[in-house]
Simulated scan of single mutants.
Amino acid sequence: MGVFVAIEGLDGVGKTTVVQQLAERFSGHALSTPGRALRDSRKPVLEAFAEDELAKALFYTASVSSQGRLAHSLAERGEWVFVDRYWASTLAYAKARGVTADLDQLGRSLIQPDLTILLILDEPERQRRLHKRGATIEDIETLDPKFRQCVLEELRAHANLIVNLSFQEPQAACSIIAQAIRDQF
């Protein structure tokens, strides 16, 4: 049996890099939400739902459902699957944006990862990375301390494992995470 690992964290902590490196290290698959098929439609969908945070959350939830089914299928075939953002991020960001619908109930119907890892990073370094890559509107909202705290609290509540990447080179960070995963399985 394979393993489905969700990698969660704030924008700029290195999730994408870690997911790609873990997929290589474990000869597995690197997925993300929204998935590749939705990347081109993401911006127009979010613009169309500009004033409706619940609609945005449901768009991301649809992506989580789709990618979760794919991840589960691959894991059932005995493969390792690493997903860059999954349900915890969708829920955390929706709550921080003021969505009051019972998304927790909806989340129980989604495929659950075998392990959810929260990546954290020294805040000045995270902000430096955001500015270096050209911060998006979504990135910028995490600069607000109240918003960031709300997201982090929700992410922590859903994480099985928290890994601090502060002051770690990417390869070293990946090694630490890979060992933590091996320790779990």
Rank of each mutant, 00 (worst) to 15 (best):
G2S: 08
V5L: 03
A6V: 03
I7Y: 01
G12I: 03
G12H: 08
V13E: 05
G14D: 04
T17D: 08
T17A: 09
V18S: 01
Q21P: 00
E24G: 07
S27R: 13
A30T: 07
A30M: 09
S32T: 13
T33A: 08
A37S: 13
A37L: 08
A37M: 05
D40L: 10
K43C: 00
K43R: 15
V45C: 14
E47H: 11
L54E: 09
K56V: 02
T61N: 09
S63E: 12
V64F: 05
S65K: 14
Q67D: 08
G68A: 12
A71F: 08
S73I: 00
A75N: 07
A75E: 06
D84P: 03
R85Q: 07
A88T: 03
L91S: 00
A94Y: 04
A101D: 13
L106S: 03
L106R: 04
G107A: 15
G107R: 06
S109D: 08
S109C: 01
P113R: 10
I117A: 08
D122N: 15
E123F: 07
E123Q: 14
H131F: 11
I137V: 12
K146V: 13
Q149Y: 01
C150H: 14
V151N: 00
L152A: 04
E153T: 11
R156V: 03
A159R: 08
N160H: 15
N160M: 02
N160F: 00
P170S: 11
P170E: 09
Q171C: 01
A172F: 01
A172Q: 14
A173K: 03
C174K: 02
A178H: 03
I181K: 01
I181Y: 00
R182N: 12
F185Y: 01
